[in-house]
Simulated scan of single mutants.
Amino acid sequence: MGIRNYLIEGVSGTGKTSVCTELQRRGYHALHGDRELAYQGDPETGTCTDSATHENHIWDVDKVKALVASQNEAATFFCGGSRNFSKFIDLFDGVFVLEVDLDTLNRRLELRPENEWGGKKAEREFIARLHQTKEDIPRNGNIIDATAPIEHVVDEIIRQSEVNKR
């Protein structure tokens, strides 16, 4: 993965997937963590569970460690959310937290199909609570205003990651 590694986090609907796709489009090495690293497991032990819940949405810590240790790219961006980020957050050179206002978040979530996380009313209400409490996101990340067009959001992440490497 990268000589420098960055985590891009935020509550559902803030744009993590869109940021990852835009980074890839621009030629950056970026991983869709929710697709490539995630599974349902106990956040403390990592043991797989049959329970498909928000609380059990975790990343494979050993896989994250192995990817961070590899240095095939100048930079790698790990995009997505996990309930066990505390198990690997210290491995990253920087953490970016995408933030939007509640109106923007609600508009984005209302566009999701019902079979996608955040597509059901109860899930949207839960996400709104997480948005308010910020209990599910890293506390020490660089805040990125993700209400801007995706190109500007990614420009800012790249700018800050370039500053960070000096």
Rank of each mutant, 00 (worst) to 15 (best):
Leu7Phe: 12
Lys87Phe: 05
Val61Tyr: 01
Leu111Ala: 15
Leu111His: 13
Phe85Ser: 02
His54Pro: 00
Ala52Ile: 10
Val11Arg: 03
Ile8Ser: 02
Ile3Phe: 13
Asn115Leu: 07
Pro113Thr: 07
Thr104Gln: 03
Lys165Phe: 01
Glu36Pro: 07
Gly10Gln: 03
Glu9Met: 12
Ile144Gly: 03
Pro149Gly: 03
Leu130Lys: 10
Gly119Val: 02
His131Phe: 08
Phe85Ile: 05
Ser51Ala: 12
Phe126Ala: 15
Gly33Lys: 00
Gly80His: 10
Ile157His: 01
Lys165Pro: 00
Glu44Tyr: 09
Val100Lys: 02
Gly33Met: 02
Asn106Ser: 14
Val19Glu: 08
Tyr28Ala: 01
Glu9Thr: 10
Ile127Gly: 11
Gly81Asn: 04
Phe78Trp: 11
Arg129Pro: 00
Gly46Gln: 09
Thr21Ser: 14
Ile144Thr: 05
Arg112His: 04
Ile150His: 00
Cys48Lys: 14
Gly41Asp: 02
Glu99His: 04
Leu102Gly: 02
Gly27Val: 11
Asp145Gly: 07
Leu105Trp: 04
Phe78Gly: 11
Arg139Leu: 06
Trp59Asn: 08
Phe88Ala: 07
Arg83Lys: 14
Ile89Gly: 02
Thr17Lys: 10
Asp136Cys: 14
Glu116Val: 13
Val64Pro: 01
Ala75Ile: 08
Asp90Gly: 15
Ser18Gln: 12
Asp93Pro: 00
Ala122Asn: 12
Thr45Ser: 15
Lys134Asn: 05
Pro149Tyr: 04
Arg159Thr: 11
Trp117Arg: 14
Ser82Tyr: 05
Lys16Arg: 12
Asn84Gln: 04
Arg166Gln: 13
Gln71Phe: 04
Asp101Ser: 09
Tyr6Val: 10
Tyr6Ile: 07
Cys20Glu: 13
Lys120Asn: 06
Ile3Ser: 08
Glu125Tyr: 06
Ser12Phe: 08
Glu110Asn: 15
Asp90Glu: 12
Val163Glu: 14
Ile150Met: 04
Trp59Met: 09
His57Arg: 03
Gly33Trp: 00
His57Asn: 07
Val61Arg: 01
Val153Asn: 03
Phe85His: 11
Val95Ile: 15
Val11Phe: 03
Ile143Lys: 12
Glu110Gly: 08
Phe88Tyr: 15
Val68Asn: 04
Thr45Leu: 14
Thr53His: 05
Ile137Cys: 09
Asp42Gly: 12
Asn140Tyr: 08
Pro149Asn: 06
Ala38His: 05
Thr21Arg: 15
Val95Glu: 03
Asn140Asp: 14
Gly141Asn: 05
Arg83His: 11
Arg124Trp: 12
Glu99Arg: 12
Glu116Asn: 11
Ser70Ile: 12
Leu91Gln: 02
Gly15Pro: 06
Gly13Ser: 11
Arg108Thr: 07
Trp59Ala: 08
Gly27Met: 07
Glu99Ala: 06
Arg4Gly: 02
Leu102Arg: 08
Phe88His: 10
Val163Thr: 13
Gly119Ile: 01
Val153Trp: 01
His152Ile: 13
Thr45Arg: 14
Glu156Val: 00
Gly119Phe: 02
Val68Met: 06
Asn164Val: 05
Ile143Arg: 14
Asp136Gly: 13
Lys87Trp: 06
Arg83Trp: 11
Pro43Cys: 09
Asn142Ala: 11
Arg124Asn: 06
Asp103Thr: 13
Glu22Met: 10
Gln71Pro: 03
